[in-house]
Nucleic acid binder design. Structure first.
Length: 210
DNA sequence: ACATTAAGTGATT
DNA sequence: AATCACTTAATGT
């Protein structure tokens, strides 16, 4: 697991920093579908993803969800960055898309490292930059793409982060993620299958065009 | 065999 | 694109 960490982060940070992270970071693992961060949580440490993927989503007052973006190994969560800086609560929920391993860096350290290591500074800034772009992308998708394009993009994203073109899920779960109804998803999926973009099975969808 | 859950479909708004 | 009402198909007990 420490080896995995090196693999994804050694080109980002200098050795001193890598060692300090390994020393101060708290190793944690999450099973698929477990909630890593809940809306309203106070965040006192920031996660560095080593393995797996995390789904970041927003929820409205009725409990309806909407997926914003996915995080992969080598990524960190911009929400925790802003939460660690200020003393605010999380506005998003983070759910393990599959089995996840990560290192938690206490916020005291992440602040100290900002002035101590330039590589850390650029990592934080770059993370912000990436997340910002993903958010803009998410807004574009919601605002400008029709449901069928949104759905296909969702499937492709999902296949991408899990490194598997077969997605195991139900139409209902997809509908929840995209904030629409199951019937609509079923219909569009059927259409996508007719266009030979996907192959449908019970509880699984195979993405053909990646 | 029966109940439950997932998925397909026509009609309506 | 959403909702309803209903059907069909797959799966669990």
């Amino acid at each position: 697991m420490i080896q995995d960490f090196d693999k994804y982060y050694n080109y980002l940070f200098e050795d001193d920093l890598l060692n300090e992270i390994k020393q101060k970071g708290i190793y944690k693992s999450f099973k698929e579908d477990s909630i890593i961060i809940e809306i309203g949580d106070f965040i006192k440490s920031m996660p560095l993803l080593i393995k797996g993927a995390i789904k970041i989503l927003r929820e409205d007052e009725n409990g309806d969800e909407l997926v914003l973006y996915y995080l992969e190994k080598g990524d960190t969560c911009a929400m925790t960055l802003s939460c660690c800086m200020g003393e605010t609560k999380s506005k998003i929920r983070a759910v393990a898309e599959n089995d996840v391993e990560l290192l938690l860096v206490p916020k005291e350290n992440m602040n100290a490292w900002l002035s101590k290591y330039t590589s850390w500074q650029s990592f934080i800034l770059l993370s912000y930059h990436n997340r910002m772009n993903e958010l803009i992308d998410a807004i574009d998708t919601i605002a400008f793409l029709k449901m069928d394009e949104r759905l296909f993009k969702y499937l492709k994203d999902k296949a991408m982060v899990t490194h598997n073109d077969v997605i195991t899920t139900t139409h209902k779960k997809i509908a929840d993620d995209l904030h629409t109804s199951r019937v609509v998803i079923s219909r569009i999926l059927k259409k996508l299958e007719n266009d030979h973009k996907i192959k449908l099975n019970r509880n699984s969808i195979k993405v053909l065009e990646l």
